[in-house]
Structures are given as structure tokens and as C-alpha cells.
Amino acid sequence: MVRHTIEKAAEIIFSLCAFMAVAAVFSITLYMIANGLPAIFQAGWKEILFSSVWQPTAQEPSFGILYVILTSIVGTFLAVLLGVPVGLLTAVFLAETAPDSLAAVIRPAVELLAGIPSVIYGVLGMLILNPFLYRLEQKLFAGSQTHQFTGGANLLSAVIVLAVMILPTVISISETALRAVPPELKACSLALGASPVTTVFRVTIPAARSGILAAVVLGVGRAVGEAMAISLVSGNSVNLPLPFQSVRFLTTAIVSEMGYAGGLHRQVLFTIGLILFVFIMMINGILSSILKGERLE
């Protein structure tokens, strides 16, 4: 009897805990929609999404975040372009060719990279990357009358910081995927006379593609949602996302102006949050369809 009661009570506690996560997601979704939608109707969705003029405190305010959305897309794309090859090849090294002693050094280092707080990436980017890129900027645009000098705080800095930040995600998930490839496949390839390098690129990686794709999508998710690190290195002016321009991302747009914003300005910041939320939801959707496809195979 007592045993039965304990079992019952435990069951209830488990389901309550499980319900917490669901309740959190549900209430966040509701809250984002309730706070993000009013500004869309007040300022007009075309005005917000397709205008490039961001002057939230002017006499006749303008809330165009086209450049901000573009920056998030372009910045994330470039970071993935830079980070994924490095991450994937690191994973190949760890899974295929690394001697155990070396892997024992590299794997903890990668895990440590994932644990470093993002503000540290930002501060290091500000102290090391920005001055370096400023010198490059001065050389590239020497004598230019039209270029606005950013002091190194530009899209390129943000992309490099983001690329480093997505490395651990890409490496660890790709490595797991590569290790899951059945050894018979590799053995067949080698037996047919293919070199180890050919085997990696023509057999192992294609066989692990859905896992690698999942790694890329998770990396995109990490890059889209990052705020702290890039707010320190990207310059924060609303501009077209070109490598040496000061830019503002969806996340940093919220961070940088929430403090003093009031009225419609504040509501539009919530709308930006809603757009970011939709981005993340889409990425999650893609991820779960990839994983489902994998299970079907």
C-alpha cells in the first residue's frame, strides 16, 4: 500500500517537472506574440520589414529593420561558411586519423571552447581582433573619401568571432556522426583500392551527411542567437552588411536600445524579438525534419 503511494507520488512529481518545460515554452511563445504583434499593426509590417531606415526617436520615427535582418542572415551564413569546414575537418581528424594521445589533448580543448562564456569571446575580439582589423581597414581604404572608418568594429569581426563560437558544436556533433558510420563501408572502400583520403571524402562523410547537416543547423542556431559577444565587436550601427561596415544584428538591436526605449520604439524591439524567435523556430523545424529523415533511412 505504502509502496503504491510512493510510486504514485513519484509519477506525479515526474510529470509536473516535465510540464514545467512545456509551460515555459508555451508562455514564452504567448508573451513574444502578445508583445511583438501590436507594433507590427501600428507601424505597418511592410514599413518594419522592408524599410532600411532605423530612426526610432526622430520626430517622425522610422522603424525599418531590413538591414538588421540582412545582417543576421549574411553574418550567420559567412560564419557557417568559415566555421563548418574547419569544424568538419577537425571532426574527421578526431574520428579517423588522430593518434589517441593527440585526440586526448584536442577533444578536451574543444569541450573547453564550448564552455567559455560568450562575453569572453566578445572582450577578446574587442582587444585583439578589432585593432588588427582596423589596421587592415586603414591599409585597404587608405585615401578613401567615402568609406566610414569603423575602428575595426565591423561585420568581419563579428563573423570571425561567431565562426569560432560555433566550432565546438560543429566538431562534436560531426565527430559523433562520423563515428557512427559502419566500419564495413570503410573496409570495402579500402579493399577496393581507394586511398584513405578518398575513403573519407567519398564514403565516410557522405554516409554521415545527415548528422553533419544537423551539426551545421545547430551551428546556425547558435550563431543567430548570439548577442553578447558580437555586440562588443560589431560596431552596432545600422548599415548594409558589407565586411568593413559597422553592422547591427537582430540580437544586438534588442540589447543595445532596450535600456532607454519607450512607447512604440520599445514595442518594435519586441517585434524584433518575435522575428528572431521565428528564425529560431524555423531552424528547429529544419533540424527535426533532418533527424526524422535520418531515422527513416
Binding site: 530612426q55 526617436t57 526622430a58 520626430q59 566610414q148 572608418f149 569603423t150 575602428g151 568594429a153 560596431g235 552596432n236 550601427s237 559597422s246 547591427r248 540589447v255 543595445s256 536600445e257 535600456g259
Partner: peptide, 12 residues
Amino acid sequence: MEDQCDYANELN
């Protein structure tokens, strides 16, 4: 020149 300034860095 309210809202006409062209900043390279906007800090908060």
C-alpha cells in the same frame, strides 16, 4: 542635427 548623425560605432 537630430537623427542626422552618421555613427560608425553606437555604444549603449
